[in-house]
Amino acid sequence: MADCPEVILGSVSIPTEDYGKIQSVADQGRNLWRLSPIRTAQIVGSEHLGLSPTDVYTMVEQFIEPGSGLPHAVVRVKHGPCTFLVELYQPEKRGPKGIWIVDSVLTVER
């Protein structure tokens, strides 16, 4: 989207993310923001994807992927004149003690 070229769209892969290590840190009571899809979208989005911590982040839905049973979440982000959907999933543990990882960022047409 021409209005917000700073935001990275599409499939997200952050090479420094070691899911097992991130889960272990959360299990030790640190970086507990990883247990919230909204906070994960906000922090990872701000640090790696061109979003801002002051953008408006709203939970759209959480669902279990049929077949794999993998939990997913979708967070809407209002970033200036643009709106994005950040898709996340839980790669390690399922439920409230599982970390969230950003899978993709999609633009919402106005």
Rank of each mutant, 00 (worst) to 15 (best):
I14F: 05
V86P: 08
K97A: 09
A26Q: 10
P91M: 02
S36C: 03
V102S: 00
K21D: 04
T58A: 11
G95H: 02
K78N: 05
Q23V: 07
S68G: 10
S13N: 15
R34P: 00
G10R: 02
I38T: 15
K21G: 06
C4L: 09
I99N: 09
P96K: 14
L88K: 07
W100D: 00
A73S: 15
I14C: 02
E6F: 02
K21I: 12
G20T: 01
T16V: 14
I8T: 07
R39Q: 11
S36P: 06
S36V: 06
P5D: 00
T58I: 12
I38P: 14
S36H: 08
V102D: 08
V102H: 05
V108F: 07
R94N: 13
L106K: 05
F63G: 15
L85E: 12
F84I: 08
P81S: 05
G80S: 10
Y57G: 08
D27F: 14
E47K: 08
V77Y: 07
L49P: 10
L9E: 05
I38K: 13
L32C: 09
S13L: 12
P91I: 04
V44L: 03
V105I: 12
L9S: 07
V56R: 11
C4P: 01
S13V: 15
E87A: 15
F84R: 07
V60D: 00
S24C: 14
L85P: 10
H48V: 08
P37D: 09
L70S: 11
T83Y: 12
D55C: 04
S11C: 05
G45F: 08
E87I: 14
T58F: 10
V105P: 12
T40L: 03
V75E: 09
R110W: 10
V74M: 15
Y57F: 04
A41Q: 13
T83L: 08
S68E: 09
S46N: 03
P91E: 01
W100K: 06
T107R: 07
A2D: 10
I38G: 13
T58W: 05
E17M: 12
S36R: 01
G67F: 02
S68Q: 08
C82Q: 11
R110H: 11
L88S: 11
L106C: 11
G45K: 07
E65W: 12
S52I: 00
R39N: 15
T40H: 03
D18F: 10
I101S: 10
I38Q: 09
